[in-house]
Amino acid sequence: MAIVNLKEKTIQVKIVYCGPGRSGKTTNLEYIYNWLLKTQGQTTSKLTSINTKGDRTLFFDFFPINLGKIAGFELKIQLYTTPGQVKYESTRRLVLKGVDGVVFVADSLLSRQEANIESFQNLIDDLEYHQINLDDVILTFQWNKRDLDENMIPLTSVEDMEAQLNSTLKAQSFPSSAITGMNVLKTVRHLSKKTMEAVIEKTVSKL
């Protein structure tokens, strides 16, 4: 649910990184945050993480980004991750409230195929809990951990991952490596642009 403030001339949207546990959601956010720090110096907010003692996401990671201006409106994006572990269903649902765009970070490890499918079904259920259809949000897939291919670790092929998760949806997808940064920025740029376009179409263009 985007917020458009006509006095402050701001549009604010919420993008959430979902996916199974240890698929690389937090690593995505950390890469983006560190890249912003390195290239733009001080960011507006620090990366907020609510973790367990073992450094697994308990509630969410969060930071906001200012994207600059379009048609006089300042564009703001709130980036979140959800906890991937199945047992954190209640907190995951809370994070998805009012979401505008979703990056589903799927784990390319061969052994995690079932976990990807289960997590994607959880996402659909969690959205339904908020009366949101998958069609109502802008969705992008990331086939993460592709760098492990070089280490001879068995991975699910991109074609199989597409077939398992994206065969009917045909959403934009990127093979990625959150740890090396491959396609991390491309994913967030693509989804931010598409989400903003959808929000502007629904709100500002109708004023």
Binding site: M1, A2, I3, V4, L6, K7, E8, K202, T203, L207
Partner: peptide
């Protein structure tokens, strides 16, 4: 459902 806050309400 997106929220649009108009200028008059925002000032108030």
């Amino acid at each position: 459902m997106d929220t649009v806050i108009d200028e008059k309400s925002a000032k108030k």
